[in-house]
Design a protein around this nucleic acid. Structure first.
Length: 585
RNA sequence: GGAUCCGUAGCUCAGUUGGAUAGAGCGCUGCCCUCCGAAGGCAGAGGUCGCGCGUUCGAAUCGCGCCGGGUCCA
């Protein structure tokens, strides 16, 4: 039910007819044909570049061709007028009746409004958060969590089949550091004086909780044990406990991870060897010596043969090591195995939502994914830039060294889940984002969360009032979908309708670009249009939604109001934000 | 030094995948409202889209080279 898509198909069919009739050459390439809303609405409702992209192929000037297309386009259903503009655009104006009919479509679709099939069921795996299991989630993790989660919902709405996944880095050096840090706290919990936490170990107080729980389970049994014995046990214990916290925090944020993948289990399963074999089969692995890093002094650099992946064949700058000098696999090798595993589980499109510190990792991982899947799998890496936490315009002080950081839970407790989720989507992911605790809870127009929620609450409030003043009227969406709406023809009303009609297109474009933030901006614009219509009622009482002596008009307006509430709720659902029914009290 | 992202109004940022006269919020200026349809409304000023080449019917958008900032790597 996407207006723009429908007309694009109509126009292509029309071109085919002209070709069949011999007026246009056969085999025209119309792949670059677009039908979109013009920037300036005074130009019309729809705009197509058909004449401009075909002019050269047809061998006629764009404007002349456009004039010819206008004659045909005027005959299409719902077209009120077609005109040529600028270098050869054809602008279409649709009938008011057509726009009015969109309201019933919205109400009939309900929460499914905007659902699309562009994804054609393609399996997509979105990996996000994936914080190391060495401590509780902190505020910085919120962004990736929300972006990943919203993108997952967005892709599902656009017809993809989505797996939401978290990669637990429970193998390697940092979890051993975790084990040692926890062991120190364990001895402390048993009465030992441990003094200051040595550098290189994790200082956070949360490990005291881990230690207490460990004492409760195991008593003093590790005190005299050798490290080789206690380390694996304490490591696994600490990881399990921290991952419980992580799951609880994500639940508090409303993030619905479906699959938690363990790096340790992956490695133990032999997946690394499988992945490397796949690369070997394609002749993409060799033993060789890397050039020293360019530019900087190679102090401790010495040439030594390593197992290397031919990343340069896929656009990377250098070939990448798969094994360290001691023969163990690099993180990169494990990551290749992991991405190959996701592919083998059925996903053809892989998306990694990553933090700003992973920028340098993108090229090599994309190269490796392409290589190990034989070109059948593609990887998109979305780098989320930093979030600057502010309080009334001043940065919130945090010190990693002192172990003081703002946890994700702190943020949720302070401003609420919905505010966190909405604000995290008010910037493109590759743009840094300011998060001001004071501003995001402010009730004013420059707070997008409030502004959008207010619009939804207003709709609901009006519907409640209508139910009171017209107790006999059936205001359910199904009933409203049958109400006559010819009298909704004020320019402001039609503007709101046209914006809502563009929602399916917005969903599809946002899904295609992997840009969930577009939904937030769409909702802000729709809310602004709706508030504008509301404000018109202050100057012009005939534009108010509730007209006491005109139940027919009031009912028609309720169709519009109900549709606005529906579309806002659809958008918020993608963002994972609960629409509010009322703001006061 | 290399990689990567960013650079758009005084500030914070959008910009419909290359379209027409580049938009919003805040701030500023001027009117209006301040009778719960409360948590503001209307209008106005404000721009060399970092700079320069190139690609084409057409560039904020794509390519290359600089300049500036963030992140990463050693």
């Amino acid at each position: 039910m996407d207006v723009f898509k429908t007309f694009a198909l109509d126009i292509k069919a029309m071109l085919d007819r002209l070709s069949a009739a011999g007026e246009l050459p056969a085999g025209l390439d119309s792949s670059k044909l677009t039908v979109e809303p013009p920037r300036d609405t005074s130009h019309g409702d729809l705009s197509t570049n058909a004449a401009m992209i075909l002019a050269r192929q047809v061998g006629r000037p764009p404007r002349e061709l456009a004039e010819r297309l206008v004659q045909e386009l005027t005959r299409l259903p719902h077209v009120a007028a077609a005109t040529v503009a600028g270098p050869g655009f054809v602008n279409l104006r649709l009938t008011t009746a057509f726009w009015q009919s969109c309201l019933a479509d919205i109400l009939t679709a309900g929460s499914r409004y905007g659902d699309g099939d562009a994804g054609r069921g393609i399996a997509v795996n979105i990996e996000y958060v994936s914080a190391n299991p060495t401590g509780p989630l902190h505020a910085a993790h919120a962004r990736g969590a929300v972006v990943g989660d919203a993108l997952a919902a967005l892709l599902e709405k656009a017809g993809y089949t989505v797996t939401r996944e978290y990669y637990v880095n429970d193998a390697g050096a940092q979890v051993e550091v975790l084990a040692r840090s926890a062991y120190l706290r364990y001895r402390e919990a048993l009465g030992e004086e441990i003094g200051e936490i040595p550098p290189g170990l994790y200082p956070g107080d949360y490990l005291k909780d881990v230690a207490v729980a460990l004492v409760e389970r195991d008593g003093r049994q590790w005190l005299e044990a050798a490290e080789a014995e206690w380390l694996p046990a304490i490591r696994d214990f600490a990881i399990a406990m921290i991952m419980d916290w992580v799951r609880a925090d994500l639940a508090a944020l409303g993030v619905g991870i479906q699959v938690y993948s363990s790096e340790r289990a992956l490695v133990a399963s032999g997946a690394v060897a499988t992945a490397l074999q796949s690369l070997t089969d394609r002749n993409l692995i060799y033993r060789g010596v890397l050039e020293p890093p360019k530019g900087k002094k190679p102090d401790d650099w010495e040439p030594r043969p390593q197992l290397l992946f031919r990343a340069t064949e896929f656009g990377d700058d250098v070939d990448r090591p798969l094994q360290k000098s001691d023969g163990s696999y690099t993180y990169f090798a494990n990551d290749i195995a992991y991405h190959y595993d996701k592919f083998r589980r059925g996903s053809r499109v892989l998306i990694d939502v990553l933090g700003a510190d992973h920028g340098g990792y993108v090229k090599r991982m994309q190269s490796a994914t392409k290589a190990v899947t034989g070109g059948e799998g593609v990887l998109d890496c979305m780098i989320c830039q930093l979030v600057h936490l502010m309080q009334d315009g001043h940065p919130v002080k945090m010190s990693k060294r002192a172990g003081t950081f703002v946890t994700l839970r702190d943020v949720i407790d302070q401003v609420g889940r919905d505010v966190v989720r909405f604000i995290m989507l008010t910037r493109r992911n590759d743009q840094t984002l300011e998060f001001d605790f004071a501003k995001v809870t402010e009730q004013s127009k420059d707070n997008p969360v409030f502004y959008v929620q207010y619009a939804h609450a207003r709709c609901k409030s009006v519907l409640r009032h209508a139910a009171q003043t017209m107790p006999d009227a059936d205001l359910s969406p199904a009933a409203l979908a049958r109400v006559a709406v010819e009298r909704l023809n004020a320019p402001e009303e039609l503007d709101v309708i046209k914006r809502m009609a563009a929602f399916p297109r917005t969903v599809e474009a946002a899904a295609d670009a992997h840009e969930p933030h577009r939904i937030a901006f769409f909702l802000y614009d729709l809310a602004a249009a709706f508030h504008g219509l509301w404000n018109k009622g202050n100057d012009n009482a005939t534009l108010r939604f509730l007209i006491a002596d005109d139940p027919a008009l009031t009912s028609a307006r309720m169709v519009l109001v109900s549709a606005v509430a529906t579309v806002i709720a659809c958008g918020l659902a993608i963002m994972g934000v609960e629409p509010v029914e009322e703001l006061r009290g």
